[in-house]
Simulated scan of single mutants.
Amino acid sequence: MIIVMMQGASKEQLAEVKKRIRELGYKPHVIHGETRNVIGAVGDERGKSVLQSLESMPGVENVVPILKPYKLASREVKPEPSVVEIAPGLQVGGDKMVVMAGPCSVESEEQILETAHAVKQSGATVLRGGAFKPRTSPYSFQGMEEEGLKLLALAREATGLPIITEVVNPRDVELVARYADIMQVGARNVQNFALLKMLGQLDKPVLLKRGMATTIQEFLMSAEYILAEGNRRVMLCERGIRTFETATRNTLDISAVPVLKGQTHLPVIIDPSHATGHAHLVPSMSYAAVAAGCDGLIVEVHPHPEKAASDGPQSLRPAEFAAMMKKLAEFAKVAGKSL
Rank of each mutant, 00 (worst) to 15 (best):
M5T: 04
Q7L: 09
Q13H: 08
Q13G: 00
E16V: 10
K19D: 13
P28L: 14
V30P: 11
R36P: 00
I39Y: 01
D44I: 08
P65A: 14
K68E: 14
E76I: 08
E76W: 10
K78Q: 15
S82H: 10
V83D: 02
A87P: 09
A87L: 10
D95F: 11
K96Q: 15
V98A: 05
C104D: 07
E107N: 05
E109L: 09
E110K: 09
T115H: 08
K120D: 00
G123E: 06
A124P: 08
V126D: 01
R128D: 06
G130T: 07
K133S: 14
S137A: 06
Y139W: 04
Q142K: 15
A153C: 03
A155V: 03
E157Q: 13
G160D: 12
V167P: 05
P170G: 01
L175A: 05
V176R: 03
Y179D: 02
A180P: 14
Q184L: 06
A187D: 04
A187H: 08
N192S: 03
A194L: 09
A194P: 02
L196R: 03
L196Q: 05
L196E: 00
Q201P: 01
Q217D: 12
A228C: 06
R233I: 01
R249E: 05
T251F: 03
D253N: 07
S255K: 08
A256C: 11
V259R: 09
T264R: 02
H265N: 10
P267F: 02
I269E: 01
H278D: 15
P283E: 08
S286D: 07
A288G: 05
V299R: 08
E300H: 13
V301I: 11
V301C: 07
D311V: 04
K326P: 00
L328T: 05
E330P: 04
K333M: 09
S338D: 11
